[in-house]
Design a protein around this nucleic acid. Structure first.
Lengths: 65, 65
DNA sequence: ACATAATGCAATATATATTTTTCATTAAGA
DNA sequence: TCTTAATGAAAAATATATATTGCATTATGT
């Protein structure tokens, strides 16, 4: 499923996908695919994204259903 | 770094590494390596572990430093 | 002491995350 | 309209998570 939370948090920080990717140390494509929900990222990558965006794992990656 | 939180949550549920692995759908070795901090598990695996142990991502995988 | 369960460790094989490159499309600004 | 930034998509290559198998060690119970 799409991860709209990351996109929102990213835009709140006025970052493009490429900007976030650079800060996190991955490729723009990787960020794009994660936001589209087509990826199963690694924990370390999730943590890097969280720290960069000032959020926690539960904030960005927890889904209730 | 070692992930003692998973081990504690697992023991609270009276599960062996093999038990948890089976419930989560991975190998015993994978669980063992995650507890030893020698692995970078995927988000989906982290989520499966959380749901099986009744914890959240922040409970089990968030590290302050 | 013996048996068994639980765990660590290590090698190889496989699946998949991530990179790299390239191209197409859309939106925004001059 | 022209240019550029931002994003989606797709193919091939690489890195790494995970599986599989087997063995060694430690703890626990009898």
């Amino acid at each position: 499923m799409k991860n709209i939370k990351i996109k929102v948090a990213r835009v709140e920080h006025d970052l493009s996908q490429a900007d976030l990717a650079k800060k996190v140390g991955v490729t723009r494509q990787t960020i794009g695919l994660i936001e589209q929900g087509k990826y199963n990222p690694s924990l370390q990558l999730c943590l890097s994204i969280c720290k960069t965006l000032g959020k926690t794992l539960d904030d960005l990656f927890w889904e209730e259903e």
